[in-house]
Simulated assay, not measured.
Amino acid sequence: MAVYPPVAAREDLLRRLPSGARLTRPAKWHVTLAFLGELSRGTDEVADTLATVPAPPAFPLRLSGGGRFGSVVWAGLTGNRKALTSLRESVRLALDNAGFPIDPRPFRPHLTVSYRAEPGVLPALESYTGPSWPVTSFALVESVLGNYHTLHEWPLPTSPTT
């Protein structure tokens, strides 16, 4: 399950990173809400479960700062992280109640930029603050041969000010 920043937010980040750096493909840049791994049951059952998640109102986020997990370099998030964490917890609870175990590591919202400690990437992220964008949906995503495919997407209600 993932939240995707809009193209404009991904392009802004890409422009700030060193050219020539080995990055993950910007089309794949997302914030993971929950990771299931290989499923013993079908994705339709997962989708049915996720359809029961209460949809919070859309909320703002922005890519800002960065850090590392070992050699993985990531962009951080600011904005309404409380709403993001609440959405993640609703997703986790629904999946857990339906018998779909997710990765048990603590939720640390981030967007993976590179799987290598590329020179210049981390310093560029440390001073980066991107444009704000509204989270208007979350998606069930499948990885096939390194490419991500959105299987289902659930919209979040928007208000006139979102």
Results as ranks from 00 to 15, higher is better:
Arg15Lys: 14
Leu50Phe: 06
Arg108Tyr: 09
Thr85Lys: 13
Gly20Val: 04
Ala27Lys: 14
Pro157Thr: 13
Thr162Asn: 14
Arg81Leu: 15
His149Val: 06
Arg116Asp: 15
Gly42His: 00
Arg88Ile: 07
Leu84Asn: 01
Trp133Ala: 11
Thr162Lys: 08
Pro104Arg: 14
Arg81Asn: 14
Asp44Glu: 14
Asn97Ser: 12
Arg81Lys: 09
Glu89Asn: 11
Val7Trp: 15
Tyr148Trp: 07
Gly37Lys: 02
Phe59Ser: 04
Ala75Gln: 04
Tyr4Lys: 04
Arg16Ser: 13
Gly76Glu: 09
His149Gly: 02
Pro57Glu: 10
Tyr148Leu: 15
Val53Tyr: 03
Leu61Phe: 04
Leu125Trp: 08
Thr43Cys: 09
Val121Lys: 00
Thr158Ala: 12
Ser127Gly: 14
Val46Phe: 00
Leu156Tyr: 03
Arg25Ala: 14
Val3Trp: 02
Pro155Asp: 05
Pro157Phe: 13
Arg41Thr: 12
Arg41His: 07
Arg15Phe: 07
Leu151Tyr: 01
Ala27Arg: 15
Gly42Val: 02
His149Asn: 11
Leu23Ile: 06
Arg88Leu: 02
Leu156Gly: 03
Arg15Pro: 08
Thr24Ile: 09
Thr150Lys: 07
Pro57Gly: 11
Val91Glu: 00
Arg92Gln: 11
Leu125Lys: 02
Leu33Cys: 07
Val31Gln: 01
Gly20Met: 03
Thr85Met: 13
Thr43Ser: 13
Thr161Ser: 13
Thr150Ala: 12
Gly120Glu: 09
Arg22His: 11
Pro104Ser: 11
Gly70His: 10
Ala83Val: 03
Pro104Asn: 11
Leu50Cys: 08
Leu77Phe: 08
Asp96Ser: 12
Glu38His: 12
Gly42Phe: 01
Asp12Glu: 14
Met1Trp: 08
Lys82Val: 14
Thr136Trp: 06
Leu36Tyr: 02
Gly20Ile: 04
Val135Trp: 00
Glu38Asn: 11
Trp154Gly: 01
Phe138Arg: 05
Glu11Ile: 07
Arg16Leu: 07
Arg62Tyr: 11
Pro155Val: 12
Trp74Gln: 03
Leu93Ala: 11
Gly99Arg: 02
Pro26Trp: 02
Gly67Pro: 15
Val3His: 05
Gly76Trp: 08
Leu122Thr: 04
Ser114Cys: 05
Glu89Ile: 02
Gly67Asn: 05
Arg105Pro: 10
Asn80Leu: 06
Tyr115Ile: 06
Arg15Asn: 10
Val113Thr: 04
Arg10Ser: 09
Arg92Tyr: 10
Ser86Thr: 15
Pro101Ser: 13
Thr136Ser: 13
Asn80Phe: 03
